[in-house]
Simulated assay, not measured.
Amino acid sequence: MSGPAGPPPAEVGGSARRVLRTGWVAFALLPVAFVGAAILGDWLLSVQGYSSGEGDLPTAVVLRAGLPALLVLVAPSIAGAWCGHRAERLGHPGGRALFIVGTVVAAASVVLNLVQVIASWVLGL
């Protein structure tokens, strides 16, 4: 059994629709964030005196370059999830889908990046 589905979208207030639309626009910026994160990560590596093609980077260097880049990468997903949750609280049933998609994409981005770093550390690549 599930709870009430909420009011139909036609009866939902303008603020809920606006928040939901803002969330989808934020989520749509994911490709831009991907490019920005790659550029930021490479720039932060070069500022520290390394290039992205080097195989044996110190862990501290990887963290100083990778964490800010990862934050840039997940920012649209987190913003979309937050807007989806807010839209759902305001009564728009479509907010749940945005919340789930944003949360899954943000979590997958973090997990995939962690797996890559851990695998390269363990395997010595």
Score class of each variant (00 low, 15 high):
residue 34 F to E: 14
residue 107 A to L: 13
residue 97 A to E: 12
residue 97 A to S: 13
residue 31 P to T: 10
residue 87 A to G: 07
residue 101 V to R: 12
residue 106 A to L: 11
residue 122 V to E: 09
residue 86 R to H: 00
residue 76 P to V: 06
residue 7 P to E: 10
residue 57 L to M: 04
residue 90 L to N: 06
residue 8 P to L: 15
residue 100 I to W: 08
residue 86 R to V: 00
residue 39 I to P: 01
residue 94 G to Y: 02
residue 30 L to C: 07
residue 13 G to D: 10
residue 85 H to N: 09
residue 21 R to E: 06
residue 14 G to P: 04
residue 66 G to I: 03
residue 82 W to M: 07
residue 121 W to F: 14
residue 33 A to I: 13
residue 48 Q to Y: 02
residue 14 G to E: 07
residue 45 L to F: 07
residue 11 E to K: 10
residue 8 P to M: 13
residue 93 P to N: 14
residue 59 T to E: 11
residue 27 F to M: 11
residue 12 V to F: 01
residue 3 G to C: 03
residue 125 L to P: 00
residue 99 F to I: 00
residue 39 I to L: 11
residue 77 S to G: 15
residue 121 W to P: 00
residue 118 I to D: 02
residue 118 I to F: 12
residue 20 L to F: 09
residue 44 L to P: 05
residue 121 W to L: 14
residue 92 H to R: 05
residue 68 P to C: 10
residue 98 L to Q: 07
residue 73 L to R: 10
residue 59 T to Q: 08
residue 51 S to D: 14
residue 104 V to Q: 03
residue 93 P to G: 13
residue 80 G to M: 12
residue 74 V to Y: 04
residue 108 A to W: 05
residue 57 L to A: 03
residue 123 L to G: 05
residue 76 P to I: 01
residue 92 H to G: 03
residue 58 P to H: 15
residue 121 W to C: 02
residue 7 P to M: 11
residue 16 A to I: 04
residue 89 R to Y: 03
residue 9 P to C: 11
residue 118 I to G: 06
residue 119 A to G: 00
residue 120 S to N: 15
residue 95 G to Q: 02
residue 8 P to V: 11
residue 121 W to S: 14
residue 82 W to Q: 02
residue 2 S to L: 09
residue 43 W to A: 15
residue 122 V to D: 06
residue 28 A to I: 03
residue 87 A to D: 03
residue 116 Q to C: 06
residue 61 V to D: 01
residue 83 C to K: 01
residue 66 G to V: 04
residue 99 F to A: 01
residue 49 G to H: 08
residue 55 G to D: 08
residue 100 I to N: 02
residue 107 A to P: 06
residue 29 L to N: 06
residue 7 P to F: 06
residue 94 G to P: 02
residue 108 A to P: 01
residue 115 V to C: 08
residue 105 V to E: 06
residue 73 L to D: 08
residue 119 A to V: 02
residue 125 L to F: 15
residue 92 H to V: 04
residue 78 I to C: 06
residue 71 L to R: 12
residue 93 P to V: 09
residue 113 N to F: 08
residue 92 H to I: 01
residue 38 A to E: 08
residue 15 S to F: 13
residue 8 P to H: 14
residue 34 F to W: 12
residue 93 P to Q: 11
residue 106 A to Q: 13
residue 106 A to G: 13
residue 71 L to K: 02
residue 55 G to F: 03
